[in-house]
């Protein structure tokens, strides 16, 4: 039965309300970043916070003047980029080995890996910190990258996708003369683009906004990523909300951009792994 006009209108109103609910904080942050510092707090309690007037880029230039923003941005990009790229290779290969290769102890190890998913990071943060200290890795890029390349949830997402790829494709490639690695890179990976995209985005989101571990292991600003930098910026006198909002906008923009570009694959990947999982 075709829904009536009233029902459609109600549906759209509901969706519009939800959209406004989710977009309002971002919009407020963006507009606040363009306003003079004293107006930000003044208008924050009323709808005038959403009215664009007397806008300027002064807060942005203040951020660059008062902090080494580009260094923090590079640090975040480098750390997250390394975790994402290395993670895609390592976790996808591990998942392929669990899904398709025959080896002794495979199922036991796979179950142990899955069990890791229930461990919150906070539970292992302290032992990991001791380990990093003993190895002399504190205040380095390595300590922010290496422990997070292998990821149980990413392995699980890859695994549930790979297990659904028809085995005959691999068998055909094997008969055609392809080695196991060649099969992975020429046959499996090109057919698993959605899961690669969703794992990449999920990993990026997790590590772009990561705060606890970088706070524990970074000392100076040299290898400090954006979330830690914005926290220390918050405590840097004088407290200027306009500057903090401008910092926030520049920190959030790459994530939004990435999501908009890969939205289609992201949704497809999460949906398919959810169905198969």
């Amino acid at each position: 039965m075709r829904p009536g006009a009233g029902s459609i209108l109600l549906r759209y109103l509901l969706l519009a309300g939800l959209a406004i609910f989710f977009i309002a904080p971002l919009l407020m942050m963006f507009l606040g970043s363009l306003k003079a510092d004293h107006r930000v707090l003044l208008e924050s309690g009323s709808l005038t916070a959403f009215l664009p007037h007397e806008l300027s880029l002064q807060n942005y230039s203040d951020v660059f003047r008062r902090t080494d923003f580009l260094r923090f941005f590079f640090n975040s990009l480098f750390i997250t980029g390394c975790v994402v790229i290395c993670g895609l290779v390592v976790n996808a290969l591990a998942a392929y080995a669990f899904a398709r290769l025959q080896w002794r102890g495979r199922d036991l190890i796979f179950n142990l890996v899955l069990a890791l998913m229930i461990l919150p990071f906070e539970a292992i943060a302290v032992p990991l910190f001791y380990g990093a200290s003993i190895l002399g890795l504190r205040d380095t890029y390595a300590v922010q990258i290496l422990p997070f390349i292998a990821n149980a949830f990413a392995i699980y997402l890859f695994y549930s996708f790979f297990i659904g790829i028809p085995k005959e494709l691999e068998e055909a490639a094997r008969i055609d003369g392809a080695s196991t690695l060649r099969i992975f890179f020429s046959i499996i990976a090109p057919n698993a683009k959605p899961v690669f995209a969703s794992v990449a985005i999920l990993t990026f989101l997790t590590w772009w906004g990561s705060y606890l571990w970088p706070t524990m292991v970074t000392i100076g600003p040299t290898v400090r990523p954006l979330p830690v930098a914005i926290a220390s910026f918050y405590t840097l006198p004088p407290l200027q909300w306009g500057d903090i909002l401008a910092f926030g906008v520049m920190m959030v923009s790459p994530v939004l951009l990435l999501f908009v570009i890969f939205q289609r694959w992201f949704v497809a990947g999460v949906a398919s792994s959810a169905m198969k999982g």
């Binding site: 028809p166 005959e168 494709l169 068998e171 055909a172 490639a173 094997r174 008969i175 055609d176 003369g177 392809a178 080695s179 046959i187 057919n191």
Partner: peptide
């Protein structure tokens, strides 16, 4: 398999 010099046609064709 790759050293047996056999070619196989699968039931579901297994086209890439």
């Amino acid at each position: 398999p790759q050293q047996r010099n056999v070619a196989m046609v699968f039931q579901n064709y297994a086209l890439y």
